[in-house]
C-alpha cells in the first residue's frame, strides 16, 4: 500500500508537469495579449516622461522581444529557481509570494474548517430528518449563503461586529505597530483579525457543503445496503454514522479538494474587503499594474497549490473508497 502510494504520487507529479507547463503558456500569452504594459501604466500618463524613456525601458526589460523569446527567458529563469523581480517594487517575486501565501492558506483553511465542522452535522440532520425544522432552517441559511455576494456579506459583518459592536477589528491580519508582550498575545491578536474574514468565507462554504452532503446522504439512505444494515439489527445511529455517512462523504471530500482552487480565487474578494495581506490581493494588484513577473509567479503558485490539493484529494479518496486503487 505504502509503496503503491509512493509510486502513485511520483506518477501523478509527472503527469502534473505538462499541466503546469500548459497553464504557464496560456497565462503568459493572455497577459501579454492584454492591452498596455507596466511602463505605459506608470509613466504613460506623465507628460514629463518622454516616449523615448518609455521605449528605452521597454527595450531594457526585453518587452519588445517576440513573445516566445520572452517566454523562454522567463521559463529558463524559473527552471534555475528564480521567479524574477517585480517591475514595480523590484523585490523578488518569490519573497512577495512567500510572505503572502501563509496568510491566504491560514484564511482559506480556517474558513474550510469552519465549513466542514458545520456542514457535517447540519447536512446529516437535514437528510435524516428531511423536512424537519433543522432541514428547513438550514435550507434558508444555505440559500442565503449561496446567493449572497461574498464582499457584501463581508461589509455587513464589518458594520455589525467591528463598527457597531466594536468587538472585532475591521481589517488586516494583525494590529499594525503593536508590540506584543508575549507570543500568546500575538496569536490572540491574529485570531481576532482572522475571525471576520474566515467567518465570511466559511459561511459561503458551509452553505454549499451542507446542501451537498444533504443530497448525497439522501441518495445513500435510499440504497439497499442501508436496508441491509437495518435488517442486521444495527442501531439507527450506527446505520447513519457508520454505513451511510461513510459513503455520503465521498462526494463531499471531492468537493472540498476541488474547491481549493475556487477558494484561492474566491478569497480575492474577501481579502480585498478585509484588507487581508494574502495572495489574492497580490494577484489583483499585479494584474492592474501589468506586473508580468508577479502575475506569472502568483498564477503558477496557485496552479501548483490546486494540483497539490487535487493530488491530496485523490489520495484521501482512495483511502475512503476501496473501489479506487492507485493503479
Amino acid at each position: 500500500m505504502i509503496m503503491a502510494l509512493k509510486d502513485y504520487v511520483v506518477r501523478r507529479t509527472f503527469i502534473a508537469l505538462p499541466t503546469l507547463f500548459a497553464i504557464s503558456v496560456i497565462v503568459f500569452t493572455i497577459i501579454h495579449a492584454a492591452p498596455g504594459d507596466p511602463f505605459q501604466f506608470f509613466l504613460g500618463f506623465n507628460p514629463r516622461v518622454s516616449m523615448e524613456t518609455i521605449e528605452f525601458l521597454r527595450e531594457k526589460y526585453h518587452l519588445n522581444d517576440p513573445i516566445w523569446v520572452q517566454y523562454i527567458s522567463w521559463l529558463k529563469m524559473l527552471l534555475s529557481g528564480n521567479m524574477g523581480y517585480s517591475f514595480i517594487t523590484h523585490r523578488a517575486v518569490s519573497d512577495a509570494i512567500m510572505i503572502r501565501v501563509p496568510n491566504t492558506v491560514k484564511l482559506v483553511l480556517t474558513a474550510e474548517l469552519i465549513a466542514i465542522l458545520l456542514a457535517i452535522p447540519l447536512g446529516t440532520i437535514s437528510a435524516v430528518k428531511e423536512g424537519g425544522i433543522v432541514d428547513n432552517i438550514s435550507r434558508v441559511i444555505s440559500l442565503l449563503g449561496v446567493s449572497m455576494p461574498s464582499f457584501w456579506l463581508g461589509i455587513l459583518l464589518i458594520l455589525l461586529f467591528a463598527v457597531r459592536l466594536n468587538l472585532l477589528p475591521t481589517c488586516g491580519s494583525h494590529t499594525t505597530g503593536m508590540v506584543y508582550s508575549s507570543t500568546w498575545e500575538s496569536i490572540k491578536d491574529q485570531i481576532y483579525h482572522l475571525i471576520l474574514p474566515a467567518m465570511t468565507l466559511g459561511y459561503l462554504r458551509t452553505a454549499y457543503l451542507t446542501r451537498l452532503l444533504r443530497s448525497s446522504l439522501l441518495d445513500v439512505l435510499s440504497k439497499d445496503y442501508i436496508m441491509t444494515a437495518r435488517m442486521k439489527g444495527l442501531k439507527e445511529r450506527v446505520v447513519i454514522y457508520k454505513h451511510a455517512l461513510r459513503n455520503a462523504l465521498l462526494p463531499f471530500v471531492t468537493a472540498i479538494g476541488l474547491a481549493f482552487g475556487f477558494l484561492l480565487s474566491g478569497a480575492v474578494l474577501i481579502e480585498t474587503v478585509f484588507a487581508w495581506p494574502g495572495m489574492g490581493r497580490l494577484i489583483v494588484d499585479a494584474t492592474f499594474t501589468r506586473d508580468y513577473p508577479v502575475i506569472m509567479g502568483t498564477t503558477m503558485m496557485t496552479a501548483v497549490m490546486v494540483v497539490l490539493a487535487n493530488l491530496i484529494t485523490d489520495i484521501v479518496y482512495a483511502f475512503l473508497d476501496p473501489r479506487i486503487t492507485y493503479d
Partner: peptide
C-alpha cells in the same frame, strides 16, 4: 433491533447494491 437479523433476515434482490461498498 434485537429481533432483526437474529430471528428474521432478508436477502435483497440486487446483490450489487445490498452490500456496503466501503466495508469488507
Amino acid at each position: 433491533q434485537q429481533f432483526r437479523g437474529s430471528k428474521v433476515a432478508i436477502v435483497f434482490q440486487d446483490p450489487t447494491s445490498s452490500l456496503n461498498p466501503v466495508f469488507r
